[in-house]
Design a protein around this nucleic acid. Sequence first.
DNA 1: AAAGTCACTGAGCATGGAGTCAATGAAATG
DNA 2: CATTTCATTGACTCCATGCTCAGTGACTTT
Lengths: 192, 192
Amino acid sequence: MKTKRQVQKEATRLHILETAYHIYAEEGFSATTNRIARAASVSHGTIFVHFPTVENLIVCLLDDFNAEINGQLHGLSEKNEQLETFLEAHINVLIRYEAFYKRLISEVNGLPQEAKFVFINMQSVVSFHFNQVIERCKKEKTIKEIPMHIIFNSWLGLVHYYLTNSYLFTEGSVLTEYKEELICNFIKLIKK
Amino acid sequence: MKTKRQVQKEATRLHILETAYHIYAEEGFSATTNRIARAASVSHGTIFVHFPTVENLIVCLLDDFNAEINGQLHGLSEKNEQLETFLEAHINVLIRYEAFYKRLISEVNGLPQEAKFVFINMQSVVSFHFNQVIERCKKEKTIKEIPMHIIFNSWLGLVHYYLTNSYLFTEGSVLTEYKEELICNFIKLIKK
DNA sequence: AAAGTCACTGAGCATGGAGTCAATGAAATG
DNA sequence: CATTTCATTGACTCCATGCTCAGTGACTTT
């Protein structure tokens, strides 16, 4: 059985991670440990009791985030779904984490190498599901003869473009606002 | 007529800008004034003789860059060109400045507001030429009925995606390596 | 209940950044 | 030639950041 101390410690750790998630989502990954400590109502030193370095904090955060996203994506391609349904499900997952995901894709290049690996893993999981669905479409001959990776990169490129340049489009959630337009036009592009 | 001093001063200013361009291209915009001063073989204080703040240095640099790109893009859409030729010309311009452009698109969100405005201007100039060419194609009924902005954003999204994730594709210049593939498949996507 | 453990604290340290300024000497001026 | 101007210098200040560590007291163990 867990002692009161262990429970408390885990709770603090989780609380720091959750606070960091929100701060990073709103202020970007250049937000300081000081900022996070204050927002979490925890002393500055406490951060380093749980994470040896900021980089480690970020990597732990991304690991958790990755697991969460993967969980939500799980089984998304098996249900014999339509392409349209799949794309919508994908966007819906992103909407749930939009602010943080947006920061992630636009700042991942400045993050520690380990963080990049986690990000690559995220991309490859999406890619896997995407492939499944597109392969099915290709068999049904409803879409053009274009290499799989180009189709995937066009989709992710389009979605990421709207996210990173969201200030050009709207003040709120770009994905919520442009979801239908993106999906319907992307399908037009790849259909015969 | 210009005095020796004026000439020297302008030369130094330009030298700092050119050095900053290369340093930023290679190390990103978090490179320090110290780093730039050393690379330019100029004292740290000299930077601030020519530019009141780092932010100002960056904005001046982007202004020059913007002018250069616009100059190269000038008249690109008037020559009654094919879509394919236009896309290739666009990529060729980007290749010339690939390292810097890559940093710019992936770090622009962290740059001062003024820098963002310059960037938006760059995008809109490209957009203008793109529109001209696509309008012509639309009249010839060779491409699909899809809103202009979606076509434009798909193209830029695809190109930017390859640039920001270049480490997934190749070690050298992604654009040089994937130029034909990108152009040819993008055309397949938008053609009827 | 006494002794020991350890999560948490916050003042403090080392580092490195942007920006300042008195000093220098070459160039311009009279 | 004497005087003034000014581009350049680099040591300096100020400040923020990541990280440390001796101290504290609630919790655990014996």
